[in-house]
Design a protein around this nucleic acid. Structure first.
Length: 856
RNA sequence: GCCCGGAUGGCGGAAUGGCAGACGCAACGGACUUAAAAUCCGUUUUCCGAUGAGGAAGUGUGGGUUCGACUCCCACUCCGGGCACCA
């Protein structure tokens, strides 16, 4: 018996140093082995450091990578930093510290924390989006986008936040307030760089089908792209022969029910068609709408407002004159900014018509079954008292010019109406997307400068590619200019440009790119991170792409993934990447919640105000009983768990194991530090089983031992491959429970166990591997094989049920056929008792499992 | 409002349509110890029964399909996430 303690502090330090010194995880650029590219969403290195949510995904991918290496794959597993961003800039505004210093410090903390978890990254490929050697190529890609006509300047209303003195992106505005600081946000027109992502809408939508992503995420992207099909229909305006108004509708079948038209307040034709009598009212409404923020306009306030223009449109299908209104429930940015309103069959139009007393004309006789299911009275619909948006048969819908859709179902009526409109040149089939072009500039310092010069003749010039990177200039201070321009407007000489040939002067673009830019292509740079002549070599790209597994938080389900896919498709179109899609398989790890407490009134109590008694948690001061429940980790609740503390107490192998043992990777799970204790005990038992037990080189294992050993190899291998880490760990616990019964552990069992545990607890297993007398790292040792023969049993327990209720269990030889099973079952004493006095109607036999006797 | 998830012991969770609750936590009982910690062994879904033998119920609710349903279908409730006047 050897006396050794499971000294995780020493062991973990030892092997982390070993891996670093030996560059154990350095990845070959090319290899005859099959490749496997496993990617983590790289973090923004915040000042707060890592919390327990970060390592969840990182641990999962690390286990998978280590497993794949043992299975003979050439694995690419890199890490880097998405290091541009607002927090470092705001800190700079407050303290004058250059964001690069803050960023450097934060990256050091993150690196230390991540390395402490023993992840097998190839650190030689570390990248940083703020490194000029990296953003040189981000700028280069922008130039390619510009050359393809995908980047343009537009004057558009942006989210202007007076308190921050800067413009915010839509994703940084929550409920009309800034994400940071909750300051009010208003709309202000400003010249902005835009990217034409809408040009790729159809491909971004269609190519989702081939991806191995969860349906939920794909659906979110589909909804975001928001494709709809319908028609554009041209309406004449009475008294304005030179004006046509085009509306977009998904319901061309309801044209006969259109009783008014609505233009968005910003619509270009409003001024032209408004009658003198209505001008005052219309102007007032328009200026009111312009002053309103997005929140006020689209938020909780669903009360419909609008103003009549005094003009009338002519319905192309029946020549009826319908009033034209303006209302802010019609958006200028979607479709044509104008709609035909069919109050009988659109809930928004219905509300509006009711409020303003406009005619509601029913033209669909509701489907009886659907009406009943929706608890809607058909009579009310027909009388125009209730809105009906579902299927039914068209009524009152024919004209003298050959259009008759009466009696048709909605779908058929749509088709027929569109062809009628197209034949007469009154309208056409049309597709629309909710997706908008991407606002790509920020009025900030800490981002990639645009490689753009505004020449004094008004032209726009690209910085020549051989002059990249265009570095961020030093500035006096980082405060926003206040006018909306970025702090770069204060960069003095840096701004000036003189054409070396013509002498024409120009000024550099002062906007910078958004944080998304760097993260849109980082997965490509890892492939060839130090290349100074190209973003990456084509040969390496062909070998490594696409990413086989991408793991990250669901908060990036829409924007990051959509933007990155967009850039990738552009790079595909210019021929520098070989795949249409970057990420073949995507997993979103579930959020880890903290334990929180509330009192009977539901008031949240910070964790440091809680005392644990035998009766459960109570409030330290009031002694009131508290309810424990999981909630998002937050500073205010003081329920944030710091990985450093966990590692200090239990070691990083325990931390890794617990993160995976909590539950399925994709599920939302509450953190419970007591649970770490459980996996820590398991590792100690595993240590004892191998390191403190005599190894038996010549052991002959019992049938039961062989079965547990081989089943464990199979189960852990399968579960690791499918990322079901929690059940893999359970099976290894079962293995330890079985083999700690031995006085001497069979070498074969010990070695196999250390190998299958190695991806999960790599430090411990390297140490155990050394104790087992091995010289080299366990990282590339082939994964053990199992033999099905040992897993099969000669005898199986067959459950005998009567009417589905378990009555007896009988051992039978494996492979007993159904008729034989039935015979044995019916002869069983318990069974005879259970069915006495009853007639056997039917016997169901499932070989290897059960017999169910139907008797009554 | 719409879309997507989810609901299983005191807790985290496990179960190709085939023995619900594996594995772990917590709790309780025991061993070791002067004692504690650590460790080891055992018990633990609920109810009836005597604390036994035994029996009944049970996977959010109500129905259905099936010899058999946590699993499939229909309706509903609650919780979480996303979107939100997109015509």
């Amino acid at each position: 018996m050897k006396e050794r303690d499971y000294d995780f502090v020493t062991i973990e330090k030892k092997w982390q140093d070993y891996w670093e010194k030996n560059k154990t995880f350095k990845t070959d650029d090319f290899s005859p082995k099959p490749k496997c590219y496993v990617l983590d969403m790289f973090p923004y290195p915040s000042g707060a450091g890592l919390h327990v949510g970060h390592p969840e995904g990182y641990t999962a991918t690390d286990i998978y990578c280590r497993f794949k290496r043992m299975r003979g794959f050439n694995v690419l597993h890199p890490m880097g930093w998405d290091a541009f961003g607002l927090p470092a800039e705001q800190y700079a505004v407050d303290t004058g510290t250059h964001p690069s210093e803050t960023t450097k410090k934060n990256i050091e903390t993150f690196t230390r924390q991540i390395k402490a978890l023993g992840f097998s990254y190839d650190w030689d490929r570390e990248i940083n989006t703020t490194d000029p050697g990296y953003y040189k190529w981000t700028q280069w890609i922008f130039i390619q986008l510009h050359k393809k006509g995908l980047a343009y300047i537009d004057e558009i209303p942006v989210n202007w936040c007076p308190a921050l003195g800067t413009v915010l992106a839509n994703e940084e505005v929550i409920d009309g307030k800034s994400e940071r600081g909750s300051h009010p946000v208003i709309r202000k027109p400003m010249k902005q760089w835009m990217l034409r992502i809408t040009q790729y809408a159809e491909r971004l939508l269609a190519d989702l089908d081939g991806l191995n992503w969860s349906e939920g995420i794909k659906e979110m992207q589909r909804n975001w792209i928001g494709k709809s099909e319908g028609a554009e229909v041209d309406f004449k305006v009475a008294g304005h022969d030179d004006v046509d108004i085009t509306v977009y509708t998904t319901r061309p079948d309801t044209l006969f029910g259109a009783t008014y038209m609505v233009l968005s307040p910003e619509h270009a034709l409003v001024e032209k068609i408004t009658s003198a009598a209505q001008k005052g009212e219309v102007d007032e409404y328009r200026s009111k709408a312009a002053r309103m923020s997005d929140l006020e306009r689209t938020g909780l306030n669903t009360e419909k407002t609008g103003a009549f223009t005094g003009a009338y449109a002519i319905n192309p299908v029946n020549g009826h004159k319908i009033p034209i209104w303006i209302a802010d429930y019609v958006l200028s940015t979607y479709g044509t900014g104008a709609i035909m309103a069919v109050p009988a069959h659109d809930t928004r139009d219905f509300e509006f018509a009711q409020k303003f007393g406009i005619e509601i004309k029913c033209i669909i006789d509701p489907d009886k079954k659907e009406a009943e299911a929706a608890k809607i009275s058909v009579a009310d619909v027909l009388a125009g008292k209730t809105c009906w948006t579902m299927d039914g048969a068209l009524i009152n819908s024919s004209n003298a010019e050959g259009l008759d859709i009466n009696g048709l179902k909605v779908d058929d009526a749509k088709r027929k109406t569109i062809s009628w409109l197209e034949e007469r040149n009154l309208g056409k089939y049309a597709v629309n997307y909710k997706l908008r072009d991407w606002l790509f500039s920020r009025q900030r310092y800490w981002g990639e400068p645009f490689p753009i010069i505004h020449m004094e003749d008004g032209s726009i010039r690209l910085v020549p590619e051989n002059e990249l990177p265009l570095r961020l200039p030093p500035v006096e201070d980082f405060k926003p200019s206040g006018s909306g321009e970025s702090p770069l407007a204060k960069a003095g000489d840096w701004l000036d440009y003189t054409d070396p040939v013509t002498g024409m002067k120009g000024r550099r673009e002062t906007n910078t790119m958004p944080q998304w830019a760097g993260s849109c292509w980082y997965y490509l740079r890892y492939i060839d991170p130090r290349n100074t002549d190209a973003p990456f070599s084509p040969e390496k790209e062909k070998y490594w792409m696409p990413v086989d597994l991408y793991v990250g938080g669901a908060e990036h389900a829409v924007l990051h993934l959509l933007y990155a896919r967009f850039w990738h498709k552009v790079l595909y179109d210019i021929g520098i990447v070989s795949t249409k899609e970057p990420f073949m398989r995507l997993i979103n790890q579930g959020m880890i919640l903290g334990i929180s407490y509330k009192d009977s009134k539901g008031v949240l109590i910070p964790t440091d105000k809680v005392e644990h008694t035998n009766d459960g948690p109570v409030h330290k001061e009031t002694r009131e009983k508290l309810i424990e429940f999981p909630a998002k980790m937050s500073k205010s609740l003081r329920n944030v768990v710091n990985p450093d503390d966990v590692i200090k107490e239990y070691g990083s192998d325990s931390m890794r194991l617990y993160e995976m043992f909590m539950g399925p990777l994709e599920a939302v799970k509450p953190w419970n530090t007591r649970g770490v204790e459980g996996v820590y005990r398991f590792l100690k038992r595993a240590w004892k089983m191998v390191a403190e037990t005599e190894i038996d080189d010549n052991a002959v294992m019992s049938k039961e031992q062989l079965k547990v050993l081989h089943y464990t190899i199979k189960k852990v291998g399968d579960d690791t491959d499918t990322l079901n880490f929690n059940t893999a760990i359970s099976q290894m616990m079962i293995f330890v429970n079985e083999f700690t019964k031995c006085e001497r552990i069979p070498r074969e069992a010990a070695e196999a166990f250390v190998k299958i545990l190695a991806p999960y607890a790599p430090h411990l297993c390297e140490e155990l591997w050394e104790i087992l007398g091995k010289k080299d790292s366990i990282s590339y040792v082939p994964y053990p094989e199992f033999d099905e023969e040992f897993i099969k049993s000669n005898e199986v327990e067959i459950l005998i049920q009567v009417l589905g209720k378990p009555k007896a269990r009988i051992m039978m030889p494996a492979g007993t056929a159904a008729p034989e099973m039935e015979k044995i079952a019916l002869a069983n004493e318990e069974v005879v008792k259970a069915i006495s006095g009853k007639t056997v109607r039917k016997v169901i036999c499932v070989p290897g499992s059960l017999v169910n006797i139907v008797a009554n």
